[in-house]
């Protein structure tokens, strides 16, 4: 009975939830265009509007979704599609470790839902805003922001999927993905080791591009990491 009372939502919880929603709104200018691009690209490469929208809603990780679309369109193996998604998204495990102590005392249902909402943006938001929020309740802030970001992400893909249908035949769709990957790459380069990693990974993957099933991708990533890690010491 006491546990039930404790988990009841009161006004303070609600205002923290709303604060999370509000703080997430400025981030939408970055998220929604990306999400729209994911929707357009998915449809252009042969997914149905429903497939790409559900993919956005469930996988909720744009870069890995685009990588998956790229690899699926190139008739590669499901193994490589999943490995690539895991590599791109492995940072979520670090975020998970970092959030775990704050979610320690919550119910398993909250842990299940909050884990699902964990992405770069809500993580960054919580990292900078959590400490000033009230202890034991600050997770409502995470929930508000996380839910808003997920909703707009999914909505953006639905809109993009609708727009994708109108793209003319002559448009060079094959160019979309390399350009998006370039746009996503530069902001995460910080310092010489990561730049060297990217140069080697890109160069080796190109030379190894004729390998079957896009395995050149893994060869490139492996070589890039060897160089990056050795520089990072």
């Amino acid at each position: 009975m006491r546990r039930l009372l404790e988990s009841r939502v009161d006004d303070e919880d609600r205002s923290l939830f709303v604060a999370g929603v509000k703080d997430s709104l400025p981030l939408l200018t970055g998220i929604v265009p990306f999400s729209i691009i994911v929707g357009i690209t998915g449809v252009e490469f042969g997914l149905t509007a429903i497939e790409i929208s559900v993919m956005s809603a469930l996988a909720y990780a744009g870069s890995s979704q685009l990588a998956a679309i790229f690899l699926m369109a190139d008739n590669t193996t499901i193994f490589l599609v999943v490995v690539t998604a895991v590599l791109i998204n492995v940072r979520f495990a670090i975020y998970s470790a970092s959030m775990a102590p704050r979610f320690q005392s919550l119910s398993w249902l909250k842990k299940v839902v909050y884990s699902f909402l964990l992405v770069d943006t809500i993580y960054a938001l919580s990292m900078s805003r959590f400490p000033e929020r009230k202890a034991g309740r600050s997770h409502w802030y995470y929930f508000g922001g996380g839910l808003a970001l997920w909703s707009f992400w999914t909505l953006g893909t639905v809109i993009g999927a609708g727009m994708g249908v109108g793209v003319p035949e002559s448009f060079p769709v094959d160019l979309v993905l390399p350009l998006v990957f370039i746009a996503l790459l530069f902001p995460i380069l910080e310092g010489r080791p990561s730049a060297a990693t990217a140069v080697v990974a890109g160069g080796v993957a190109t030379v190894a591009a004729p390998l079957d099933y896009n395995f050149g991708l893994l060869v490139g990533v492996g070589c890039g990491l060897v160089v990056g890690v050795s520089l990072n010491r």
Partner: peptide
């Protein structure tokens, strides 16, 4: 070290289709 993985994957996806 793990923060090096996303740049590696994105570069390995971005560069080959150009060539």
């Amino acid at each position: 070290q793990m923060s090096l993985i996303p740049p590696a994957v994105l570069a390995a996806l971005a560069v080959p289709p150009l060539f």
